[in-house]
Design a binder for these strands. Structure first.
Lengths: 137, 137
DNA sequence: TCCTACGATGGACGGAATCCAAGTCAAGAA
DNA sequence: TTCTTGACTTGGATTCCGTCCATCGTAGGA
């Protein structure tokens, strides 16, 4: 059993076949899938799984901090299984491909106190955009 | 007539009452409105204006670079009329309020060449999140 | 093995945005 | 000024993404 499933069990999760399959899909693919893509891959192994269950499970995994929601454009959210290493995203403006990137520096430190307007700023998310090699050709 | 309408005319826009009203709404309010809020404010002056027209006009203004689309959460997109001065956004995780902020430094420079994977990176968008003074209370 | 509360199901529902065919009108031409 | 035309507007239907809900099923403890 994967580390992910171990952790979920440790948190008191009831281990159903549906949750197992969703977790395995995310654990196996290190890409950024939409909920529908997760559902499609899960349904290959467990044909009766419903979309509602996939949405529920994804939401729970996000709450537990095991995966991260990525809202790139205004389209469907994507789910990033690489939640334990902090990173940012680089998105192709042509085809929408997403890569994890690790910029230097700390963007949080770049926001001076007088630019915080009394907010308790806790997070800085950076999205880089540009054309990928394929789309630039 | 406002500068914005001047520029649009210069670009060959047919100047309809609907477009004029939408442009005026955005020019007047320096907040981040949703398409529906733009429609509501526009309808105060031009009751028959349709949602489709508001969406069309917003899309055209985005293409022309006069306004910027902001996808904060998974909810409705917001439109930022402050497109000519580069800036980033600070969003309250409690109430969703948005402020324009001007961080120091250049996030684009923080992405080393070996982290660009051949992309022609042209833009870096930073979203800060935290609790605003009201929500922190 | 039995119980039961937690989880799964799938169809209905909702908001956001787009599409489309038909009607309207801004602005250049005469 | 009036005419003409293609760009623009309209609103209802449609799609897409996601959530809700009543009902059914089942994991896992007793």
């Amino acid at each position: 059993m994967s580390d992910l499933l171990e952790r979920l069990r440790g948190r008191g999760w009831r281990l159903t076949s549906q949750r197992r399959v969703v977790a395995e899909v995310l654990d196996g693919e290190h890409v950024h899938l939409t909920a529908d893509e997760v559902h499609a891959r899960a349904a290959e192994r467990l044909p009766e799984i419903s979309r509602a269950t996939v949405y529920n499970t994804l939401g729970e995994l996000v709450t537990l901090g095991e995966i991260v929601e990525v809202s790139t454009d205004g389209r469907a959210k994507r789910y990033d299984p690489n939640a334990h290493r902090p990173h940012q995203h680089l998105i192709c403006t042509g085809c929408g491909a997403i890569r994890d990137v690790h910029p230097q520096g700390n963007p949080l430190a770049d926001l001076p106190a007088e630019q915080r307007f009394g907010f308790a700023v806790s997070q800085a998310e950076v999205t880089y955009r540009g054309l990928c090699p394929n789309c630039a050709g």
